[in-house]
Write a protein that binds this DNA or RNA. Structure first.
Lengths: 337, 337
DNA sequence: CTGTTAGCGCTTTCAT
DNA sequence: ATGAAAGCGCTAACAG
């Protein structure tokens, strides 16, 4: 049979409330009884039942983490950080993989998390409009998004300044003499896609880059689709001299595609990504990119969320926009001609 | 205030037990009352409180997943599968990243999981001897390991036949004419390391491969250490013509290291891995390896575990050894001379 | 078929 | 400083 608080109360010949006090480090317990209780606790190898505890305290010390795909390096990296930081604060994390089926799966997960009474939820991906999150507001379950954000302006988020990030990327490419820049975008429904595209368009204007609509392709933030997009770009009558992808995953795919076209990077064509996932800095890859420091973003989101919303419950929304940093490596070079 | 079963009982003018019956799809409820209750449930947007439910049923529909490093592609892949399969069966999964600090962190996590009263735990990595798991036996919390196994012969596991796998790898390399084969091993404490090494030694004898002790290095299953190991192998007076790494991660590192030595793979040297993580099949990599089909392994472990141990609780241990398959790609070739 | 009641293991008033 | 007792929201006998 399981050892309960009552058992140890009996053995220590005190009341259950005293035991509870000791266990929760409350005041009003004499040193003697505290010691005695702790002894019995050890002796009987008692461990508190968090379920029963949650029943009363209404807190589970558990958070939910909702991401689209755990095998995507960006999410693997950030998930790990989140799990680690949460643990430091005494929280467990239930991981939810929506598999990009955003809609259904995500809603299902939100229901589950709510029923499990998690203290809060961290989203690694939300569409700009996300109906299903209203439930959370109604149920008064706090949540935050990182990487992407909702359009509501009272939402909690930690994101990178995507407009500026891409803007700087284009500026850099322009400075290398590139005027035909292919852009591989993400799906419209995400803030990351619309913002980055906006940054691209803005920069294109400012640096008088060719504005052929054919130079903008949707890569769907997927490797396969990015490959196809790259292929289309490479087959254009006037082939772009540089390709800028809205994230590293797609840039990597573009890199491979160029290789399959027997193009040498960066001699024949420059490739640039966005995010700076760990993989990109790898010796074999060395992708020039815009670094949003995914781990730092995730860490910041988790810390702020736990501190401001879970430990306390501040009214003020957490809204952090990190300045990304141009990270020049070896997949970009001056336009050859 | 939160809607409880009592509220909906009141509104539907039935008893709480009837509501409970409806919610749990139990028999002995008339169609009429069932319908009425369900209506009220919807109307009040009631959702059951799993914490309270667990209090009685002793089941949380939650499992723990303990792995060393979520960013290691092997674990990212398998974790995703596990989370997905668990979800299909109605289980949530709490993810625990031990960060290779195996000892402490793992024990801490086991405690937490136990207190959270998870229904079971899946381990992606255990040392051959693992003290901390005794607690689980004592607490009667079922667990299974995949990939690696404990030495206890009544433990649950799904692993690959590591001896045979490496044996076949060596046989293959021998058939290509390689006699100087460098082997990069993992740390002694894991079954994967000892078994694979055993397979290597066995094959080395059977196929009369050179048995210089210098040809065996410890790569610690880490990229950095594998890099160093490779370096040492390449600097040997008689440089091996092939390097076999005990896992893909280290093989990838070896690949990079060879490149930095300006060696062409497979023309100058053959490289082979073990596991067949998704990355290895990538066009840019194309690593010859021994495929243990990590996803299938993880899926099988999760399914069997949930079905045999969580849904039922069969006495008989789950012990599955999968036959790995030689997967020849482009990092191996006949010995050049 | 339906309702009543007794807990699950713990925290938390409220007394003492 | 300590104890008694009242629940948290739900399920599971047990009675009808």
């Amino acid at each position: 049979m399981k050892v309960t608080i009552e058992d140890i109360a009996k053995v220590a010949s005190v009341s259950v409330s005293t035991v509870s006090r000791v266990l929760n480090n409350k005041k009003y317990v004499s040193e003697d009884t505290r010691k005695k209780v702790l002894e019995v606790v050890k002796e009987l190898d008692y461990r508190p039942d968090n379920i029963a505890r949650s029943m009363i305290t209404k807190r589970t010390n558990t958070i939910g983490l909702v991401i689209p795909d755990l095998t995507n390096p960006f999410y693997a990296e950030t998930s790990k950080v989140i799990v680690d930081v949460a643990r430091e604060y005494g929280f467990s994390t239930i991981i939810c993989n929506t598999d990009n089926q955003s809609g259904l799966r995500q809603e299902e997960y939100i229901d589950t998390l709510q029923q499990k009474r998690v203290d809060g939820i961290i989203f690694g991906s939300v569409r700009t409009k996300e109906q299903s999150l209203n439930k959370l507001n109604a149920a008064d379950i706090p949540y935050i998004t990182y990487h992407r954000r909702l359009e509501e302006d009272d939402s909690n988020f930690v994101v990178s300044d995507d407009i500026n990030g891409i803007y700087n990327a284009v500026e850099y490419l322009a400075s290398l003499g590139h005027q035909h820049i292919g852009y591989i975008s993400g799906p419209r429904c995400f803030s990351t896609s619309t913002e980055r595209l906006r940054g691209f368009l803005k920069a294109r204007k400012d640096f008088s880059i060719k504005s052929d609509p054919q130079l903008i392709k949707d890569g769907g933030y997927s490797e396969e689709q990015a490959w196809e997009a790259t292929q289309e770009l490479l087959e254009l009558k006037i082939r772009p001299t540089a390709i800028l992808a809205a994230n590293d995953l797609m840039a990597l795919s573009a890199l491979d595609c160029c290789l399959s076209f027997d193009l040498s990077v960066p001699d024949d064509i420059s490739i640039m990504g966005y995010d700076d996932i760990t993989l990109s800095s790898h010796a074999r890859i060395n992708l020039t990119t815009v670094s949003v420091k995914p781990k730092i973003m995730a860490k910041k989101a988790t810390k702020l969320f736990i501190e401001k919303k879970l430990k306390k419950s501040e009214e003020k929304a957490i809204q952090v926009t990190l300045e990304p940093k141009l990270t020049i490596r070896k997949t970009t070079a001056s336009k050859s001609n």
